[in-house]
Design a protein around this nucleic acid. Structure first.
Lengths: 227, 227
DNA sequence: CGACTGTCGAGTGTCGACAGTTTGAGAATT
DNA sequence: AATTCTCAAACTGTCGACACTCGACAGTCG
């Protein structure tokens, strides 16, 4: 458990694996590695100034999150997406959130409602003067809250996994929101529907919202792919 | 990377990690390790006659499947379940399969219908003269087929993860089906509903079926827990 | 000219070792 | 007797090294 200084970052005590995983994730989301490219363990280990063991474990972690894939005896590669896979991810996300919001509709407390409103407010704030990454994070946080408040922790875990993949796709596309304020506003109807406590109304509001998001992402993804 | 033994038969091309993971899985499902118990890497490595490295990786794999949990600097422990977690798993499973069967209702082909019927037949066969484990596997295979035929591969992946956890719970309970033939028969209405191609009818049939299964598992789990 | 074979470098799979941490039992103290 | 302290054993995190495999390239033979 040595402390290593290399370049900018000072890696210390806390589990190397998680730190490496975080750094790799960041690098992937920044687009430092092209999709499909091979990640050599030894090279990464040199870059991070550590041995191959923690790099391997970090890579396995990212593999379980669907950001890397591995082939026996060949190592790790940056995950690639195609249209169908992206569709699957959004379809599954819709499935989860629908279920979550229906559960939530039956148990919404004033606290939850307030938390969601607060989150919407944060979203509007960064929509005005935040970075693209911040906007996405606030957006994700709102939807994650829906899942959390549903009460099903297992569902939240799957949602988180999907989020990793969605972020990956989205930042692979580049700029997403041309009008972030308007995007933030489209979350308002969801909160309103929840206030009615009517599961069907909630589902409809959610469907509409996610439908737009999906359409936009898939469309931009296709454009990028054919270029 | 060892042993190319025994003529042509066993070329151990597959790496140690997967083999160890399989063996560990089997041991866990056989109940060789009590829930919550600590798994020492070095001990396992000695037992398997390998070094700690592949054992660690296998353990990480099982962790990502939800069968083990890890604590920093303390190692791996056999996953424990409580009522709430079991409820969450079944709730999520229902959510996935509902979605899958609705998708499937709109695209069912004769081939798919035949495959499902065949699977039901297998289920009935092992219900008469198969082991408990076989019965569970055939049952799972039927439901997995529903997910596969939905066309969403990502959904299948999550379903598989959930299955690992359900198997774990079920075999932790012990005997599950008191009348396996009757259990197999309860899948018939699902196929019939699919034939009508009506999503609502399909969902209803599925809800009924899974509801019974869940009720039974949860009930037995609670009994066992209080004993 | 094309197909096959041998060789070489790069990279993964696995191992044994070391260092720091956690745990639990027993000694020491209140 | 209960509690705290001490310390050694057991264990995890990390490292560097070696063996084996895969793919590329060049040379050989038809």
């Amino acid at each position: 458990m040595t402390s290593i200084t290399r370049g900018f970052a000072t890696i210390q005590q806390r589990d190397l694996v998680n730190q490496i995983a975080d750094m790799l994730t960041e690098a992937l989301l920044k687009g430092d590695f092209a999709p499909g490219v091979h990640l050599a363990e030894a090279q990464l280990a040199r870059d991070f100034g550590v041995s191959r063991a923690p790099v391997r474990e970090a890579a396995r972690l990212l593999e379980s999150r669907g950001m890397l894939v591995s082939q026996p005896r060949r190592g790790f590669f940056v995950r690639t997406f195609n249209d169908a896979e992206l569709d699957d991810v959004y379809d599954l996300r819709l499935c989860l959130e629908r279920h979550a919001i229906r559960l939530l509709a039956g148990k919404l407390t004033p606290d939850m409602e307030a938390a969601l409103s607060d989150q919407l407010e944060s979203m509007r704030r960064v929509a005005r003067d935040g970075t693209g990454v911040q906007q996405i994070e606030e957006d994700v946080a709102f939807h994650r809250m829906l899942c959390e408040f549903s009460g099903n922790q297992r569902l939240v875990r799957v949602f988180d996994e999907l989020c990793h993949e969605m972020r990956f796709c989205i930042l692979l596309i580049g700029q997403l929101y041309d009008d972030p304020v308007r995007v933030a506003d489209t979350h308002e109807p969801i909160i309103e529907a929840l206030r009615t406590r009517d599961p069907d109304a909630c589902e409809a509001a959610l469907d509409y919202h996610i439908g737009i998001a999906q359409q936009r992402v898939v469309e931009m993804f296709r454009e990028r792919e054919t270029s």
